[in-house]
């Protein structure tokens, strides 16, 4: 209870009762935009990340379930441009740096810094996306080739959808930062945009490890 003072107010009963002596807590001095777990929007985003993480986790369960049934996993003739994918993962990991800088700049209300780092992060994201899409066209198997193909294409497709959505969001924020009007709540939005980006990156690290560090797959590579 921050500052109790007596003033004109009623008891919570809606029939307005005359009780000028009712104690009050005045909240008019409290801020309207805060960061981190104090903000409802942070909880909303964390909830969404929990939902999507569960989805990815179940997809991995599906992967291992199908793998457990198979005698040969992955099936013959699977090739994945491993070095290029690894390099692309590196670029994706690198993008965490500028996105973290954006979050820091948003806390400081530093417009120039926000613009600069967000453009950098967005460009890195778009490079990753471009390489990913190009690799789709060049995959040696398809979703309807076999169960392995189905689950790997679904994992790739679902994660790429996340990349697309997060990149569109990045682009919109770039436009916002140059065109405006920038409202105070956008600072929180920018920080959460970075948080979501970390999720997109981390989830790919896990998914990548499962698909491409699969002992069966490494065997094929050799």
């Amino acid at each position: 209870m921050r500052s109790a003072r007596t003033a004109a107010a009623t008891s919570p009963e809606s029939a307005p009762q005359l009780a000028p002596e009712t104690a009050v807590i005045d909240v008019s001095e409290l801020p309207t935009v805060v960061f981190g777990s104090r903000a409802p929007l942070w909880w909303g985003l964390v909830g969404m990340i929990a939902i999507e993480s569960t989805m990815f986790a179940l997809l991995l369960v599906t992967y291992f379930y199908l793998r457990g049934n198979a005698t040969v996993w992955p099936p013959h003739g699977v090739e994945a441009h491993f070095p290029l994918r690894l390099a692309n993962l590196g670029v994706l990991l690198l993008s965490v740096w500028p996105m973290a800088k954006v979050a820091g700049a948003a806390s400081r209300k530093d417009l120039h810094s926000m613009r600069r780092w967000l453009i950098f992060g967005t460009v890195l994201g778009l490079i990753v996306l471009g390489v990913r899409l190009a690799l789709f066209a060049d995959m040696s198997f398809r979703w309807n080739s076999h169960a392995y193909g189905s689950v790997v294409w679904t994992i790739l497709g679902l994660h790429t959808t996340h990349l697309v959505a997060a990149s569109v969001e990045n682009l919109l924020f770039v436009v916002l930062l140059f065109v405006g009007p920038i409202e105070r709540k956008h600072l929180l939005d920018l920080r959460l945009n970075s948080l979501y980006w970390y999720f997109v990156v981390i989830s790919w690290v896990v998914l990548f490890a499962v698909i491409y560090l699969d002992p069966g797959f490494l065997e094929v590579m050799r």
């Binding site: 009623t10 807590i25 909240v27 008019s28």
Partner: peptide
């Protein structure tokens, strides 16, 4: 028992409180 005042009446303001103890935190 006190009540809360100081929320704007001309825009849709609500009070956000702490997760565990519900102490007033921001609007």
């Amino acid at each position: 028992q006190p009540v809360v005042t100081g929320l704007s009446r001309t825009r849709r303001e609500i009070l956000v409180t702490g997760t565990l103890d519900a102490e007033p935190d921001h609007r």
